[in-house]
Design a protein around this nucleic acid. Structure first.
Length: 279
DNA sequence: CTTGTGCCCTGACCGC
DNA sequence: TGCGGTCAGGGCACAA
């Protein structure tokens, strides 16, 4: 499931492979994933545009195109890009961009949860999907001071708050567990009960884990692959996510799994005790 | 305002 | 081998 590190990996690769290329035409095999305008408008207006650059906005991949257009792709659970002359072994191509150098860019997405937005840049940047995002988890200007300010007015469980894109953008189910394990905070802990020291631990764990995962090109626990179809390697080194019943890497206690807001949450019952107030 | 639930979608997995 | 049921989950619409 692409989160900040996986999307960052895709964006970095995309800038190396397709920046400066011109899009000759597109094929939209799953029209329903286009959430703005009609397929006809999309096909007509993207043809001939040059890719000026690719950047990350939370978990969105933004292609700045010539003519003032923007293509915004959210990979959701299983979406990822592939670059080359054919998609190879991948069989769920929902969008193909045919480029002026004879190579193609494919968006592969098994579950069709992915979301594509296309339109004039200003209009898209002001859409509810892209505008309501909180500060990026790795943004340089997200300091500890600001982090505390943001969380201090929040209610609810720390795991849910970390995953809320309107609060802090970029963290999903895997990395929220990794962060809370590193900070030794139980995922059900109410934010309102966290002291400054705990918030500081979460903050530094957030920066550390995400930066490490970016360096390792993300995790491929479900269906993430980079532009060449290769897996990221953070998953091999993950601390708790998906390790239910396996020994904690710190204290050997079996890792537990609970459901929080319908999402699996993994933690070590000994390293992350529930001493803090939950209710 | 907040919090909770269902939905989208497909492949993997399980029990019989 | 096959078949039905269940599960996984990011973000959003919608309800309470």
């Amino acid at each position: 499931m692409p989160e900040l590190p996986e999307v960052e990996t895709m964006v970095s690769d995309l800038n190396k492979k397709v920046r400066g290329r011109r899009i000759k035409s597109v094929r939209l095999s799953a029209p329903k994933i286009l959430k703005s305008g009609s397929p006809a408008f999309f096909k007509k207006n993207i043809a001939g545009k040059r890719i000026i650059g690719i950047r990350r906005l939370a978990k969105n991949i933004l292609f700045d195109l010539s003519g003032g257009f923007l293509l915004a792709v959210h990979p959701k659970m299983t979406g990822h890009f592939l670059y080359g002359q054919s998609p190879g072994r991948f069989k769920h191509i929902r969008l193909a961009l045919f480029l002026d150098n004879g190579q193609n860019l494919y968006f592969n997405d098994m579950r069709k949860f992915g979301r594509i937005l296309f339109g004039p840049r200003e209009k898209l940047e002001n859409s509810k999907e892209l505008k309501s995002l909180g500060p990026d988890a790795l943004a340089g200007n997200l300091t500890l001071k600001k982090f505390k300010e943001i969380l201090s007015v929040k209610k609810g469980k720390i795991k849910s708050v970390l995953m809320d894109q309107q609060t802090i953008a970029g963290i999903g189910n895997i990395y929220s567990d990794e962060i809370l394990f590193t900070a030794k905070i139980h995922p059900l802990t109410l934010v309102s009960s966290l002291g400054g020291n705990s918030l500081a631990k979460i903050f530094s764990a957030m920066k550390k884990i995400l930066k490490k995962a970016v360096l390792l090109r993300g995790s491929s626990l479900s269906d993430f692959f980079d532009l060449s179809g290769e897996k990221g390697t953070y998953g091999d080194r993950r601390l708790v996510y998906g390790r239910v019943g396996q020994p904690c890497r710190r204290c050997q206690t079996p890792i537990k799994r609970i459901k929080i807001n319908g999402r699996s949450s993994y933690f070590c019952p000994r390293c992350q005790p529930d001493k803090e107030k939950f209710k």
